[in-house]
Simulated scan of single mutants.
Amino acid sequence: MLKDSRIFVAGHTGLVGSAIYRQLQSSGYTNVIVKSSKELDLRQSEAVNHFFENNQPEYVFMAAAKVGGIYANYRYPVEFITDNLSIQLNIIQAAHRYQVTKLLFLGSSCIYPKHSEQPIREEYLLDGKLEPTNEPYAIAKIAGIKMCEAYNRQYGTDFISVMPTNIYGIQDNFNLESAHVLPALIRKIIEAKQSNTETVELWGTGKPRREFLFSDDLADACIYLMQKYSNQDIGEFVNVGTGEDIAIADLADIIAQAVGYTGRFVYNDSKPDGVSRKRLDVERMKKLGWEAQTSLTEGIARTVRWYEQQSEQAGAIRI
């Protein structure tokens, strides 16, 4: 992937796509192609084929997806499976049709069985039942992995798949109806501080453990893999994470410290916890020569600062 290679970042306005786009630009790549969802609906095959025909991208980062937390997955299961299947099918087919040199497909750690042995290794895929709260999304992502594998096997393409852990950071989604746990906590705690609320209610028991990776680190990993890793190397997808997890209650305390909130948390155990623990085995990625660099405390502090700045500019809050 040369500095003037034609590189398409699908989903460049989202959390991961925006981080990849920023890093490509800052690294001196001069021919990065992006389109907003209004300009290019990736769910429409004719539009996707037309785009690939006109732009002839050589490298594709597939960061476009419909994503959300437990509430959004529960409320909109049809959209989570159909939108993601459509996006994946259209881009992967077009990448083959228009002879893309290399494609990187971004999956999710939710592809793994609910009761996977910890830490979760890549070979545990399809080794048990999925977590029901995000099953439609997980099935779509599994289909994307298998689609890449099928094209590689049948046509000799170089389509690689990356399975990141929970991602957070700049440009995250802070909508409480659809956000993942970390950005939702940031918003709730900041708003509690601004309103001088003494307690913050959080879903579940606070006991589940989760692993979190800063979005800029994932972007760095994706560009590293696009440069260094080929499907022909080991023929399998790769987990990307920190290899460390934290209880949700402890996560809330770190965010409270970053925000400067001194109230207390009340846990609503009538709400679902999801799986009790989810930590990825990242030994394969380490052997490829990459490790995450941003600590959770540092990443949260940077994310909080970004959200506060955006909120101030929008006039939503005053810090």
Rank of each mutant, 00 (worst) to 15 (best):
S26L: 14
K102E: 01
S230F: 13
Y155E: 11
K35H: 11
D269G: 04
D281Q: 01
Q309W: 11
V240T: 01
Q171C: 07
G206T: 05
S116K: 01
T101N: 09
D127C: 11
I186Y: 10
Y137A: 13
A258K: 00
A314V: 03
V34E: 04
G206I: 10
L103I: 03
L103A: 04
Q310A: 12
Q293S: 15
F105D: 07
E298H: 01
F174P: 06
D4Y: 02
I91H: 03
Q23T: 02
S108F: 01
Q313N: 13
Q88G: 15
P208C: 07
R121D: 14
Y59I: 00
K66V: 15
Q23G: 01
F61Q: 04
Q25M: 05
A252Y: 02
K102S: 02
K188H: 15
H12M: 01
G260E: 09
A94S: 02
L280E: 00
T199C: 03
L125Y: 04
G206Y: 14
P164H: 00
L225H: 01
N166V: 08
I190P: 11
K207E: 08
Q194C: 05
P113I: 03
E177L: 13
G28M: 09
M147H: 04
I255R: 03
L130V: 08
T101F: 01
T297Q: 14
Q309H: 08
I70L: 14
L125K: 15
P183N: 08
R318N: 13
F51W: 00
N49F: 04
Y21V: 14
W290S: 07
G204W: 09
A65T: 14
I170K: 02
S276W: 12
L251R: 04
F214N: 05
I87P: 03
N173D: 15
T82M: 13
A247S: 12
P57S: 11
Y307S: 01
S178R: 06
T157P: 09
W290Q: 02
V16H: 06
V100F: 01
V100C: 11
R209P: 09
E123L: 00
G17T: 10
I319V: 13
S295C: 08
V275M: 15
I145C: 10
R187T: 13
A150D: 10
E79R: 09
H180M: 05
I111E: 12
H50D: 03
P113Q: 15
E312H: 10
Y137C: 01
I189N: 00
L103W: 00
E201C: 04
Y124I: 03
K141L: 08
K35F: 14
I223D: 00
P119N: 09
Y76T: 14
G144W: 15
Q309V: 13
K146R: 03
P164M: 06
D253Q: 08
L85V: 03
N90F: 15
V266H: 11
I160R: 02
T133H: 06
K129H: 08
Y71I: 12
P136K: 03
F8P: 06
Q257H: 12
D253C: 06
S311Y: 07
S37R: 14
N231G: 11
K193V: 05
Q44A: 06
Y74M: 13
F51A: 03
E123R: 12
V282N: 01
Y267V: 12
S109G: 08
L106R: 00
A19G: 02
M1S: 11
L213A: 06
T197Y: 07
F212I: 05
V16N: 09
Q93G: 10
N239H: 10
E283W: 09
